[in-house]
Amino acid sequence: MSISTTKALLKKEFIENKIALIYVPAILIAITMLTFLFGIISNRHGWLSEIAVSSNSHSRGDIFNMIYTSSMLAWLIFLTIMLFFYFAGSFSADRKDNALLFWKSMPVSDLQIMTTKTLAGMVMFPVIILFWSLIAAIVGYIVFLLVTNNFPIIASLNSETSLSTFLNLQGSVLVVFALTLLWYLPLFAAVGLLGTLVRGWAVPAFILILSMGSAVEALVTLSDEGYFSSLMGERFKAPFTIISDMKDMNPLAGAKVNELISASNFVPAYISSVDWVGMILGWVVAGIFIFIASEYRRRRIQA
C-alpha cells in the first residue's frame, strides 16, 4: 500500500472522527480552564490560601508539572475509552449509507483498510490527544502564572518548574501512553471484530462476552479465580498495577511534589515492569482478530 493511500485513509478516519478528536477535547479543556480561572478569580472558599498554608514551606518542587502530569492520567483514561468506542464503530463505519460499495471500488484491500483503521487508533489518535495535552499545558501554565501572581507563597514553593522537568515528565508519560495502548491492543481489536459483526452493539456484546465467559467458567470450575477471568482481569488491570507499584517515581501516580521525575530513571524501570510475553501474545491475537474482521468485511457488500 502506497504512502499516499495510507495518508488518504488516515485522513478519512480523522474527518470521520473529528468530533471526538477536535471538538470534545477542546470543549473539555475550555471547561476545565474556565472552572480554574473562575475559582482563582473568585477564590470564594479561600482554597488557594489553604493550599499555601498547608504546604510545607521547606518543600521545593514543581507544582505546575505535577498538577499537569496528574491530568495526563485523565487524558489516558479519556483516550482509552475513546479508542474502545472508535474500534467498536470504525470497523463497521464504512457500511453506513452503503458507502462500503464505494470504498470497495478503490484499489485498496479490506485488510489494508482494517490495518489503517488500527493504525489510526493506535498512532494518529494518541498523537492528537497528546497534542491537546500540550495545548492544555500551555493554557494551564498561563492559569498557573495567574495563581502565582496572586499567591506569591505558591510561587516560592514552585522553584523547580522548568522546561527540563516538563520534558522529563512528558517523555515518561509518552512511554506510559504508548505501552498502555499497545497492551490494550487485543481488547481494541476484539471490540473492532465484534463491531464488524454486530455494528453498534459491539461494546455491549464485548461486555456480555466477558461477563458470560467469566460466569460460565465460575459455574464449571466452581471458583471465581478461573483462567479466563484471571486473564481478562490481568489484561485490564496490568497498566494500572504497574503505575501503582511504581508510585514513588511515577508521574501519573501522584509522586511527591518535591521528587522530580527523571525520564532516564523512570522509562527503563517502567519498560522492565511490562510483561513482554503477554504484550507480544496480545499483538498476535490482535492480528488474528483484525484479519478475521477483514475477511468478514471482504464478503460483505450490504449495509
Partner: peptide
Amino acid sequence: SLPRFLKVTELLSLVEDM
C-alpha cells in the same frame, strides 16, 4: 454509495490519493 460525511472536495482529494 458515496460516503456522506465528506465534503465534495474532501472526497475528490481522497480518491486522488487512493
